[in-house]
Design a binder for these strands. Structure first.
Length: 378
DNA sequence: AAAACGGGGAT
DNA sequence: ATCCCAGTTTT
């Protein structure tokens, strides 16, 4: 004898991870995405290499910023073998301006690993994918689902916000308990097929509809499934991140000229902009226009044994790096005497300095401030 | 658990 | 100005 059905009370399905039925949720996501998805360059193919490149570029970087970088990169390095065979300097040159340059170096290192460990074929297994440098849980899940259709969850900025609202999650998202809950949710809602489309669709909803401020709940395909909307808390969830305290500092960048050449140095592996080139740069006491420049020639001399005379102010660049708000005074100097000597960093790694013809600056990967300055002295 | 890592888009 | 972004790694 079969058990009596409970179907006469279908209102609340407590087994569903979302309000309403999960099947309906899938249908709503899918229908919305078919109609509203953006035409993005990395959606033209499921080639794991291209999916990988896009996902690395998109880490902490907005879609609009990535588009052109993705096009240029995949045009110049169309295959994983091309990337593995490339010089790191050329990879960095293609990455210049995108920020988080460790991504480019790890991408390059990972390409070499794929050639060595997997015979040049990008691995399908999500754990093997995540074992590559620069690939964490999100990126591994994204590649596994989008390129290989595997049933792997994802969790990033858009979906953290979306999922928190869907389940009415009231805690700070940064705690490990919150992360655990959201990853569990990401897994609980996965469909049995077209997982890559599903994951991308949810990111797209988060990006276009379930925005940080003033989410467009009236047009949201998931509002019927959303706990935050149901309780009118969509503007309170997720809780705001605690704001960081900026530290203002002043530095000076020097364009030391010797005929048609300028002095540049390569940033060491342990410092900011590792692998990129930059103009000589020193911290300055005092703030902004009040800074004292009298010690600058001596700083340059004790750094590399070059004597040069401070000339006119070129420009002042303000930029931020993580918690620092940097005012960068840029001055020209003229070479007088002295020879570059091999330098060692604090870690005994060699520090590369060189004179380079200004016409050759375009070949070097420079930091963004370095590039602005380089254009100025051309 | 917190900090480091870049630069620009959007309001 | 301020917040935020298809995170990962190191401390």
């Amino acid at each position: 004898m079969a058990k009596k059905s409970r179907s006469n009370s279908p209102k609340q399905d407590t087994s569903s991870p979302v309000r309403g039925s999960l099947a309906a949720f899938h249908v709503h996501v899918s229908a919305w995405f078919k109609q509203h998805q953006r035409d993005l360059p990395w959606r033209k193919s499921q080639d794991p290499y291209r999916v990988w490149i896009s996902e690395i570029m998109l880490q902490q970087t907005q879609v609009a910023t990535v588009k052109e970088y993705f096009r240029r990169f995949t045009e110049q390095m169309p295959t994983i073998q091309d990337l593995a065979d490339a010089q790191e300097q050329d990879v960095l040159r293609l990455w210049e301006g995108l920020g988080y340059y460790r991504r480019a170096r790890q991408l390059h290192a990972a390409a070499k690993e794929v050639v060595k460990r997997f015979g040049g074929k990008f691995p399908r297994d999500v754990d093997e994918i995540q074992s590559l440098p620069g690939i964490g849980r999100y990126t591994a899940g994204a590649i596994a689902s989008i390129a290989f259709g595997q049933r792997a969850p994802i969790l990033e900025a858009n979906t953290q916000r979306l999922y928190a609202r869907l389940i009415g999650w009231d805690e700070m998202l940064t705690t490990s308990a919150s992360q655990k809950r959201l990853w569990q949710f990401a897994e609980d809602i996965l469909p049995d097929s077209e997982v890559g489309i599903f994951n991308q669709a949810l990111m797209e909803v988060g990006s276009l509809v379930c925005t940080p401020k003033n989410p467009d709940c009236k047009q949201c395909p998931l509002s019927t499934h959303c706990e935050a909307y149901h309780s009118g808390r969509q503007n309170e969830i997720p809780r705001p991140k605690k704001k960081i305290e900026f530290i203002p500092i002043t530095e000076i960048a020097l364009v030391v000229r010797k005929k048609n050449q300028v002095l540049v140095r390569q940033c060491g592996p342990d410092e900011r902009w590792a692998g990129l080139w930059d103009f000589p740069r020193f911290p300055l006491a005092g703030s902004g226009d009040q800074a004292d420049l009298s010690a600058v020639p001596d700083q340059l001399n004790s750094a590399i044994g070059i004597d040069a005379d401070l000339q006119q102010h070129l420009t002042t660049i303000k930029h931020g790096v993580t918690k620092y708000r940097i005012t960068l005074l840029c001055h020209e100097m003229t070479y007088r005497k002295g020879r570059l000597k091999p330098q060692l960093g604090p870690d005994n790694q060699p520090r590369v300095w060189k004179w380079i013809d200004v016409s050759q600056l375009s070949e070097l990967p420079l930091s963004t401030t370095g590039r602005k300055l380089g254009r100025l002295v051309l």
